[in-house]
């Protein structure tokens, strides 16, 4: 049964992918990209990767669509037909695809429990997590504790990308906090936006602090948090969202999340452990791990949320007044 759902989703993904490439209207291609993300999120659920699915749904179907739309609004929404012949790229693609398929012939079969990936490291994580870390969600324990260095690196990449966007586009302040007249007309959207804004924030907090026990954690929560504020900015205009969370505050928050993460590492060094060794944070190693994971997940959440929101602010502030 699982195989059937898996296959159907893959076929749907293929159809969506082909239509995205064929589509001339960039607006339609963006919407299809969002559908593509949602389909892959469903596929991740079928393949038992619930944490990943949550992230993909929030990012792919949520924020990346909005960013693409913002870019299209700043540039153009029609794609000119290509002038060169598409034969050469097609041949390159087919040859690369063939080579990759040839490469898979040696791979262990899909779902095979004896595959080399499953025999090394991962069983140790699964076996040791209840005793050493004491939380049920192994993904969180690997992410935050066993591979804390990796996560710190990823966070640094996000931080750098946020800084890069800010350097490239810069933030333009606009006079007046008035609502865009176009939005003022859409009463229903504003009422529903007001209704859902607190609920989304509440859900983000739940995902943030429930990450030890169920699917969730700093990355997902940060993205959902940002989505909530982006919804607010869409419904009430950028000016009002800025009064809620000013741009200057966001810049501080971006750095603060990173500092919190590194600070936890340094704190554990000061207490006599190694960098990011949470065992020394409390008297009992397991509660030390708990404390460390909660703190660094908080750092991740703060940085991710503020980078996402900052990127949105920067893109949006480029648009002329009264334009969505």
């Amino acid at each position: 049964m699982e195989i059937l759902i898996d296959t159907i989703l893959l076929v749907l993904l293929m159809i969506t992918g082909f239509s995205i490439v064929r589509m001339r209207s960039l607006l339609a291609a963006t919407m299809l990209t969002s559908i593509y993300s949602l389909l892959s999120a469903s596929l991740f659920v079928v393949l038992d990767a619930v944490d990943v699915a949550l992230t993909e749904a929030a990012i792919g179907a949520g924020i990346s669509t909005i960013l693409l739309l913002a870019t299209i609004a700043l540039t153009t929404d029609r794609e000119k037909p290509p002038q060169r012949t598409p034969m050469l790229p097609l041949i390159v693609v087919i040859i690369t695809g063939m080579a990759l398929i040839y490469g898979t012939l040696d791979m262990p079969h899909f779902g095979n429990p004896q595959a080399p990936v499953h025999l090394h490291v991962a069983p140790a994580y699964l076996h040791d997590t209840p005793g050493e870390i004491g939380i049920p969600n192994v993904v969180t324990s690997v992410l935050a504790s066993y591979r804390g260095y990796d996560t710190l690196g990823e966070l640094a990449v996000i931080f750098t990308a946020g800084a890069g966007v800010l350097t490239l586009l810069g933030y333009r302040t606009r006079g007046g906090n008035s609502m865009d007249p176009g939005i003022r007309k859409l009463l229903i959207l504003r009422v529903i936006g007001k209704l859902f804004f607190p609920l989304i924030l509440l859900f983000a907090l739940y995902v943030q602090f429930h990450g030890d026990y169920g699917p969730g954690g700093g990355f997902q929560a940060g993205v959902i948090f940002a989505t909530g504020f982006i919804l607010y900015a869409l419904a009430f205009g950028l000016g009002n969202a800025q009064r809620l969370i000013p741009h200057q505050l966001l810049r501080i928050m971006v750095a603060f999340g990173m500092l919190l993460y590194i600070g936890v590492g340094i704190e554990s060094m000061l207490l006599g452990g190694k960098f990011l060794e949470y065992n020394v944070l409390a008297d009992d190693p397991v509660s030390g791990q708990h404390l460390g994971i909660i703190l660094i997940e908080l750092g991740v959440g703060i940085t991710v949320a503020s980078v996402m929101l900052m990127i949105y602010y920067v893109f949006r502030s480029r648009q002329p007044e009264g334009d969505l």
Binding site: A49, V52, T55, G60, V117, V139, R147, D150, E154, F219
Partner: peptide, 14 residues
């Protein structure tokens, strides 16, 4: 296997 999940989880946000 939780390990690829962790890698991809962070990769998506990146």
């Amino acid at each position: 296997n939780p390990l690829p999940h962790v890698l991809i989880l962070t990769a998506i946000v990146v």
